[in-house]
Design a protein around this nucleic acid. Structure first.
Lengths: 222, 222
DNA sequence: TATAAAAGTTAGACAAGCAAAACAAATATT
DNA sequence: AATATTTGTTTTGCTTGTCTAACTTTTATA
């Protein structure tokens, strides 16, 4: 049985993996994601290595073992299913679900999470547009870019957000955005990469930081 | 913010209070309920006293303060609502709900538990027949006895169980019992208090220990 | 390639939660 | 009242997860 903390380390490792496409994280990276000091990470990683959940050598990169990845996916699945449950069944808003799901993801009962999955009709994506791993641990992959990668003139559709914090999500709504919203990139400032985008006929200016947290797929012009 | 352990101590104190009718528990009593050593309880109680959640003097009885009772009722409310949710919405059996609810009762989100309450239609009793405190902390009280207190010849209706363990609950089902089942006390052995009861026309012999864990209300003969 | 900066580790400390063992007080029993 | 039993406390120590501060290795850069 893993502790909450151990589960969180594994989840963080998987997230870094999924978001960067690169397997292998450093202690600083993990430390800043988990809001602890690098020294703490070193300790914990040694323990996870003992349990054969990560591969690790002194001064080397940290990767998940097959077993570790399985556990991590399990936690991620629970997190995203709970978020979907809160959103769909209990009318939480999308900026409220993350915090509560951080707690619920650690509940130990495979029967429970599978029943929740069933109740929701086996959803493939959570309220933030992220793919929900299925009971076998399979994750739907999607060819997606972040909004800042697009050239002026491009048309796209928002499919997910990278940052799940309430402040960011509330800002997203304010700009008229949401999952499936169409976006046109009007122009891009060379100096600071500020973007002018058009959403539902309205123009908005957003920062590069903002754009880097919006996942989109290209849309054919019509 | 209270830790899981602290919450469990408060809940145990409230349970002893509700079950015995007497406010005030000893360290041994608490220790056996929480499956820890009396020394551990002494430590914890001192900490809870620091936080003004219990009243306590060396070698004296432990009672909940107003604040402590409020917290304890909150945990109990969450426990019983989650049990009801699992039973009603996720088709768990009544012997499966307790274990998972032990985990879910510690989730911190008043919005979540109130939404679950709403989803369930503000139930008054959980699958074991125990009263669910409402959002204001009010608990429905019922005049109930345990089955072993009845005289031979009495008619009664089962309203709740005291022991929530899976083994006990499965045994209860085997004897044909459940919430609202009518029971007739046929006879009682003076030597060891073994009871012969009649349930749905069938006779069963049960131990005193078993009978002490069944709550009933008297039923008028018909 | 030498050196500075970044990244990572080690050692020592602390708080929480638990337990074993020795001790002290309270209560029952004879 | 003397003694035994029950109940409760204290002391010491383990484990987990965290930290700070000092140190080491790797990497980037001049």
């Amino acid at each position: 049985m893993l502790s909450f903390t151990e589960e969180n380390y594994l989840k963080a490792l998987l997230k870094i993996n999924l978001e960067s496409g690169i397997a292998g994280a450093g202690t600083n990276e993990l430390a800043s994601m988990l809001q602890v000091k690098p020294a703490t990470v070193t300790d914990m990683i040694r323990k996870l290595k003992e349990k054969k959940l990560v591969n690790y050598e002194r001064y080397g990169k940290i990767t998940l073992t097959r077993e570790g990845k399985k556990k991590a996916i399990d936690v991620l699945r629970k997190h995203r299913l709970w978020e979907t449950f809160l959103y769909e069944k209990l009318s939480f808003t999308w900026d409220e679900v993350h915090e509560v799901a951080e707690q619920l993801e650690h509940i130990q009962s495979s029967k429970l999470i599978n029943k929740i999955d069933e109740l929701l009709g086996y959803p493939e994506f959570d309220p933030h547009g992220d793919a929900i791993p299925d009971a076998k641990g399979q994750i739907k992959m999607r060819v997606q870019k972040t909004l800042d990668e697009l050239m002026p003139g491009s048309l796209c559709k928002m499919v997910a957000v990278k940052d799940n914090s309430a402040t960011f999500l509330q800002y997203v709504v304010k700009v008229g955005l949401g999952i499936s919203t169409k976006i046109k990139v009007v122009s891009k400032q060379a100096y600071d990469a500020m973007l002018v985008i058009e959403v539902k006929g309205k123009k908005h200016t957003v920062s590069e930081k903002f754009a880097r947290n919006i996942f989109v797929v290209p849309e054919l012009k019509d």
